[in-house]
Simulated scan of single mutants.
Amino acid sequence: MTIDNEEVMVKMYDNPTSKDFLTLLPLSLKFEDYAGTEKISNLPKRLSTEDAPAGSKLSVGDFTYYSPWGNLAIFYRDFGFANRLIKLGKIESGIEKLASIKGTVTIEKMN
Rank of each mutant, 00 (worst) to 15 (best):
L22S: 13
E38M: 01
G55F: 05
N71W: 13
D4T: 08
T104D: 13
N83C: 01
E38V: 02
P16Y: 08
D33Q: 07
L43H: 06
Y34H: 14
K109T: 13
P26R: 05
I107W: 04
V105L: 05
T106R: 11
F81I: 06
E6K: 15
T2S: 14
T106L: 14
F79L: 09
D20C: 07
L85M: 15
D33A: 07
G94H: 11
L27K: 06
D51Y: 12
E50I: 04
K90M: 01
F21C: 08
K19M: 10
P68A: 05
T23F: 02
L24R: 11
K45N: 03
G61E: 02
N111V: 06
G89E: 09
Y76H: 03
T49D: 02
F81Q: 07
S59Q: 15
G80S: 12
T23Y: 05
A82V: 14
E32F: 10
G70F: 08
Y76I: 11
L98E: 09
Y76M: 00
L22I: 13
L22M: 15
N15F: 10
F63M: 03
S100L: 07
D4F: 08
E32C: 01
I95D: 07
I74G: 11
S59F: 00
K57I: 10
A35H: 04
Y13R: 13
G89C: 05
L85P: 03
T37S: 11
V105A: 02
K30C: 10
I95K: 15
K90C: 01
Y76E: 03
M1I: 06
T64N: 10
E7L: 14
A35I: 02
I74P: 13
T2G: 06
L22R: 15
D20Q: 11
L24S: 10
D78F: 08
P16M: 09
L58M: 05
G80C: 03
A54Q: 12
Y76D: 03
I91T: 11
S18Q: 06
S59N: 11
T104I: 12
S56R: 01
S59R: 12
K102F: 00
A82N: 12
A73G: 02
Y65T: 03
K39P: 11
I107N: 07
N83A: 13
